[in-house]
Amino acid sequence: MNLELFVIIVSVLLFIYLVFMEKQKIKSYIIVLLSVFVFEVCTGGLWINKNMSNWAFLYGDISWILTLGWTAIIMISTLIIEKVIKKSEKLRFFLILFLSSLSGIIGESYVLGVKIREYSPDVTSRLSGINIPFVNVPVEALYYIPVFMILIICTARYWNRMELKI
């Protein structure tokens, strides 16, 4: 329940900030949210989400709380980097990727630690058994999390630029 409340509060505050301070980023927020949701639906077999309130689950074990959480991580990273780096799109991309991946690894460590998430047997059979020091996350997350972030960030930044006219 603590995680659910925390994520909802952060998401509401983030959305309020976007509405009052960065209206043009609301489209980006929605795109990231939808992209994360699509990704979670398509990769549902990789992990098992559990130990959250019943209302936190949307379809199967896909939790909209975790969807909001990942979205918040990516959006906050994007907002920070875009404030600091004004010009180079490539540099912005890689810094957003770095910051969101780092936050993602910390977030993953938390959800694994409180047993909200565990990896499916298909995944655990492929893991090396080596963990990243201090965060207790499999070393393979150094690949999985950045790849997840790359695909979401690219999708969001592409669709954000696209004019939605046919």
Binding site: V38, C42, E89, L151, T155, Y158
Partner: peptide, 23 residues
């Protein structure tokens, strides 16, 4: 549904980097 969605993500990745390279 999921195959079009997955290819949508891959295509967005490709299109985004086309934009960055030819920006």
């Amino acid at each position: 549904v999921s195959i079009p969605l997955l290819f949508g993500l891959i295509l967005s990745f490709v299109k985004y980097w086309e934009y960055v390279i030819y920006e």
